[in-house]
Design a protein around this nucleic acid. Structure first.
Length: 385
DNA sequence: AAATCGGGGCA
DNA sequence: TGCCCAGATTT
């Protein structure tokens, strides 16, 4: 079988002449898993979407809906950032049917500020599909992988955590732990198949969900990117990188190209009653489906004389300051203009009243823009949720 | 395989 | 400041 051959070859290569012994025998693998699980039982973090360790064996099932929700939110996003959003979402929409019944616009508003907005659209699309199929999530990796917004990592995570299947869960934490355990010199993007093969060998048949979470907790709290706390590590005796004296060197990454700088202008039009003129961005692309104030494109040159003319309509535009924002692949400088205007909203635009602003689907860069023109405008009024 | 897609925390 | 985070999707 080709897949098995590949797996064996990759793992042998990875552990070859690193520490001499390269003990990935079944006994060694079990030791790593059991040491990790023992550590997890004692030190696991209590998170809003988690059930206590060993729950599955006691017949306590994690709700697949909550596992799925948390895993999607946690894609490229820190645990601390996700907590509040997770609580808000499951309170608003306690079941997948409830989420399926919600307007997409409400989901986008609730997601605003969390980033990677295609996740919110896929979340809603996935909920619609699952609800249509009776409200049950598939219980296999392959079945989960078919759903929108669920890739290799998330499918494995849900299968392991919610359905107790021995899936190889590989995220950024696990990549770091594994490249250190085996001193993998191959740069990350290229090493991923090796890493996956090695994880597959480590996954225990018992408590695979806890094992996955233990690996991720280890990466988050002990085997950290900077200054790992190796003295506290439950598998330090199995770790190859610790012998090199510089575990921080792993994972090896390819150098990245530097971000280009783009510039643009944004126009905050304010009505007499304090309402602000907004519009909706296209569904696809950057900040897809989110709300914005009128802007120029973000490659336009902004130099004094031409800027106010770049506005979507003439007004007494006054310079209100400049804000900066950094996206994944470019940095942005926005010149902010402010004007008082009268009359109806131009085509494709709408007025948002002062008390409504905080509830709009405004990405962070747009909140910065509005704040530059009207300080305090995007803050939640007291007593409002 | 490479590019696109946010935002925040931390050393 | 640069790096990284419970990655997925498109090209």
């Amino acid at each position: 079988m080709a897949p098995l051959d590949q797996t064996r070859k990759a793992s042998q290569q990875a552990v070859s002449d690193d520490i001499g012994s390269g003990d990935t025998s079944k006994a060694g693998s079990r030791d790593i898993a059991s040491r990790l699980l023992a550590w997890y039982d004692a030190h696991h973090r209590d998170l809003p979407w988690r059930v206590t360790p060993g729950a599955f064996a006691r017949g306590v099932r994690a709700d697949p809906y909550r596992v799925w929700m948390s895993e999607v939110m946690l894609q490229q996003t820190t645990v601390e950032a996700v907590k509040a959003y997770f609580r808000n979402f499951v309170e608003k929409w306690p079941t997948v049917e409830a989420l399926a019944a919600a307007p997409t616009e409400d989901v986008m508003k609730a997601w605003a500020g969390l980033g990677y907005y295609s996740r919110a659209r896929n979340l809603k699309a996935c909920a619609d599909l699952v609800a249509l199929r009776g409200g049950r999530f598939p219980d296999t990796e392959a079945g989960l992988r078919e759903l929108p917004g669920i890739g290799a990592y998330t499918a494995a995570a849900i299968a392991a955590i919610a359905f107790d299947q021995p899936a190889a869960v590989v995220d950024g934490n696990v990549e770091r732990v594994m490249t250190r355990l085996y001193s993998i010199e191959t740069p990350l993007s290229e090493a991923k198949p090796q890493i996956r093969a090695l994880v597959e060998k480590l996954v225990p048949q018992a408590r695979p969900g806890d094992f996955a979470q233990a690996m991720m907790d280890l990466g988050a709290t002990i085997c950290t990117p900077k200054r790992p706390r190796c003295m506290l590590c439950p598998v330090r005796e199995d770790c190859s990188a610790i012998l090199t004296g510089d575990p921080e060197r792993f994972p090896v990454r390819l150098p990245k190209d530097d971000k280009p700088l783009r510039k643009g202008a944004a126009f905050v039009a304010e009505r007499e009653d304090g309402a602000i003129l907004l519009r909706k961005r296209p569904e696809k692309g950057l900040l897809g489906g989110m709300t914005e104030v009128p802007t120029t494109g973000w490659t336009a040159r902004v130099d004094g004389a031409t800027t106010a003319e770049a506005a979507p309509f003439p007004a007494d535009w006054r310079r209100a300051g400049q804000i900066g924002h950094v996206f994944t692949h470019f940095a942005l400088e926005v010149e902010v203009f402010h004007a008082q205007i009268k009359g109806d909203a131009p085509d494709g635009h709408f007025w948002s009243l002062a008390h409504e602003i905080s509830g709009e689907a405004l990405p962070t860069v747009m909140k910065k823009v509005i704040e530059a023109a009207i300080p305090g405008a995007t803050k939640k009024p007291k007593g409002m949720q």
